[in-house]
Nucleic acid binder design. Structure first.
Lengths: 258, 258
DNA sequence: TTTAACTGGACTACTTAACAGTCCAGTTGT
DNA sequence: ACAACTGGACTGTTAAGTAGTCCAGTTAAA
């Protein structure tokens, strides 16, 4: 996530086009945009989309297949690889459930709590009528996606991003979007929990209500609650998932003060 | 600064090693880490540092020389290129004084005001005794660098980073470091203003005093003042530098509420 | 002043990634 | 049955990067 100022003494890491394509696809899977069973475009199509030659795409896809990340339709010469999220019990994506890109889950949630509340408070002042309408429609779609975690997550994403980008501060909005995006993989797991979707949906309804009143404080408070709930849920998931982090740690309050 | 989630339909942009090296050096110059007159390491040294072949380094340096960004010691076969910040009147680095990486200066400063105060407040609780000692020593060095803007800026950088990294939240600390780093080029210009260095130094003394008391609120307040002063200074600079942004804009308050 | 250690310039031969094109065998949907 | 796809498997070509060598000039210490 950070964009470190590269000191001169650090090695250049060149990446071949093959590797970049492979990583791109992996990150799309990790973030939940590519779902299990999704079909990738054809080799030729991918090549033209990515502006590389077909051979290069081939190499990347073959490596992905070798890693078991995608599965090429057996025996056949038809459509390319299906995304395969857990081949051989190995999940793709964020491997360590207690850290994201090297940052602790606590740090990420603390950052969200600080920055996201500011961003959405600002967004509350600038949301257009169409934005609000779109959010209300999104709620309806979410209600219908209640029993499909991945479908719900896609709606969730659109819902959140609509709000973030209503803020006038593009820099902070982008930052929050990054934080949200990097959480997607965790969120997908958490969404499997019974009741998780319903609770999120309830939060969303509350948020929309606050947004309609154009009350920045209420919106910030609602988001704060939402984020805290998400944090608690992910702690539960981690707890029975990997046997780690049984309780909310002390660090949690340290960044946000008092 | 943002790390966008790359959708599959976007072109892969491969970069040759030459280009990466060139860009790396340019960004080091733009951020003020490489100063005018600095000598780059020898080609062979650079090659081993960057883990590339000497020919590759040659290509990058030659291109930089062609662009006039570095200057190879004339005629000679001795030490490599000197950094040259304003060849032919063209300054290197941030070309648009009112935006950084596409973000408005206001957005950057608003972000700093929000996040940096939180980070330093946290840092106040975790600063070690050695850290404080180092900060006090830094003040002494800064006093001696008062009439050398670039030297002062190097001290300034170390001073700020020492505080940031004392925070327990690595994610937010990294973010703040990024913001600070991207400001460096602007700061270097602002430091040329008479009195600018003295004012910064005064702020730093005040900050150290607050840190020694381990008073998070006081530290946050001191930084808030510091950042606001920097913002005002950069507005002045822009005003007579490029004839833009004569007054503090309305957006300024919109992100931080009320 | 001599000398040994560096410097950049220039060149070679080699490896590899990526490109562009072709042809083929098998699927798919009409 | 058919046309339009799919991936598989080749080919030859280009460009980037590597590794090595040799040279002429500079530098600083012996």
């Amino acid at each position: 996530m950070p964009v470190p100022l590269s000191p001169l003494h650090e090695a250049i890491h060149k990446q071949t086009a093959k590797e970049m394509i492979r990583d791109k696809i992996v990150s799309l899977i990790a973030s939940g945009i590519l779902q299990v069973g999704d079909e990738l475009p054809s080799e030729r199509e991918l090549a033209s989309m990515l502006m590389v030659s077909r051979e290069t795409v081939r190499g990347a896809v073959q490596r992905l297949a070798g890693e078991g990340i995608v599965q090429v339709s057996q025996g056949a010469r038809t459509r390319i690889a299906n995304v395969n999220v857990d081949v051989g019990g190995q999940r793709i994506g964020v491997t360590n459930p207690t850290s994201i890109n090297g940052y602790s889950l606590d740090a990420v949630h603390a950052a969200r709590l600080l920055v996201e509340t500011a961003v959405v408070a600002d967004a509350a002042k600038h949301l257009s009528a169409e934005d609000i309408k779109r959010l209300e429609e999104s709620i309806l779609v979410q209600e219908q996606a209640c029993n499909d975690p991945v479908r719900f997550l896609i709606c969730d994403r659109e819902f959140h991003l609509t709000i973030y980008y209503a803020s006038q501060n593009r820099l902070l909005a982008d930052f929050v979007v990054d934080l949200y995006t990097y959480m997607l993989d965790h969120r997908r797991i958490a969404m499997g929990k019974p009741g998780a979707i319903e609770k999120s949906l309830e939060d969303h309804r509350f948020i929309v209500r606050a947004l309609k009143m154009r009350n920045p404080e209420a919106v910030a408070a609602a988001f704060s609650e939402h984020i805290l709930r998400i944090h608690d849920t992910s702690l539960e998931v981690d707890a029975d998932g990997a046997g780690l982090k049984p309780a909310r740690p002390a660090l949690w309050t340290s960044v946000l003060g008092q």
